[in-house]
Design a protein around this nucleic acid. Structure first.
Lengths: 193, 193
DNA sequence: CTCGGTGTGGACCAGTCGGTCCAAACAATG
DNA sequence: CATTGTTTGGACCGACTGGTCCACACCGAG
């Protein structure tokens, strides 16, 4: 008796993600999303609860496709030192690859807390926490293997690596060019030496 | 023949700065500024060109009072190593001191380029450049004095220190607490060792 | 083929935005 | 005092915001 939608919800979330990523939450209007997806207003509100809901799903998708996937791949690398340097090289490459200089949606969102509720904040906080944990695990493995000096303190260093990541992502949005970003990534290696 | 204003322009800029700092450019409405200053709409547009102009002046004031002043004080410190560590300690202290967790207006603005014109971008870019130069000068002085190892490369390291600064300012907005920020600042010292 | 319920398009809403306009208030000058 | 040029308050503007509503198109079940 029902009737199937003429569009794929997942496609809409993906498009919305692109727009939110480029223009930020406040800077994105529902009309922008309507324009970029072709889905009409009524249908949009029929499929989603509203702007916040749309953003939440977009953020979840981004976090899953970008950070989670990247960490999953890196967990597979045996050498923890290589895992960390590969991580930073990838971040720099991603930052330079994007002509729109959008940076990282999660980090951008962390500077935009006022607009968002607990649920969004939790996603962002979890992302930072899991990143820190990833680095910490890698450092501890390096200790066991003897490839990372014992003088490298796991928790403080992992937090500094996250700070460097944030710095690269933010400065990569315009303030610094390719050479600078690569140099920063290289300094990350010094922190684990 | 004329008639003197009933308010001080500088006070208004200062108030506007506080509001922009807390709520961001897009998140701040002219009505917000009217409310927080008590200056009425007509008078405001009589004294300033508009929202952009107001923001520009607020940003200039912030940059001058915060960054420039801080750097000026630190330039006076003889020991470059101490100058750098004092810098980071001050940043962490400032971040923790502010209950509103507003971070740094300049850095926040660097993630909000779409709304702004060349003039604003130039201020932000100059701020990052001058910070990098400050660190670089300090490192070179350390080389001369022998207090900073020759293996510490001036340009890459100074850029990494800026990235760490950005990381602290962004993560200090909510994602990380006092201990974490202090640990990150401590790692900055490792970069110049 | 009819019926029932879902999806669709777009007119419409109240609220807010940045910005304009202007009559009235005002103080200094002649 | 009258004249002059500015400041002031607030009504007002068109554009846009996120969100609602509903007549209508549509398809599957009976």
């Amino acid at each position: 008796m029902p009737w199937e939608k003429s569009f794929d919800e997942s496609d809409v979330v993906d498009q919305a993600m692109q727009v939110f990523w480029e223009k930020g939450y406040a800077g994105t209007s529902i009309s922008d999303i309507i324009e970029s997806t072709g889905v009409k207003r009524g249908s949009l509100y029929n499929a989603f609860e509203g702007k916040q809901d749309l953003f939440l799903r977009a953020l979840l998708k981004y976090d899953d496709e970008q950070r989670r996937q990247r960490l999953r791949q890196l967990e597979a690398i045996d050498d923890p030192r290589e895992a960390i340097t590969t991580f930073f090289d990838g971040i720099v490459k991603d930052s330079l690859k994007d002509p729109a200089r959008r940076g990282c949606l999660v980090i951008n969102t962390s500077l935009d807390y006022e607009h968002h509720d607990e649920e969004v904040r939790k996603i962002v906080d979890d992302a930072f926490r899991e990143l820190t944990d990833f680095f910490e695990r890698a450092i501890r493995r390096g200790h066991e293997q003897g490839t990372i000096p014992a003088t490298v303190e796991p928790r403080p260093t992992s937090r500094a690596l996250v700070a460097l990541l944030v710095g690269i992502r933010v400065l990569g949005r315009g303030a610094m060019g390719r050479t600078a970003l690569q140099q920063i990534a290289a300094q990350a290696k010094r922190l684990i030496s």
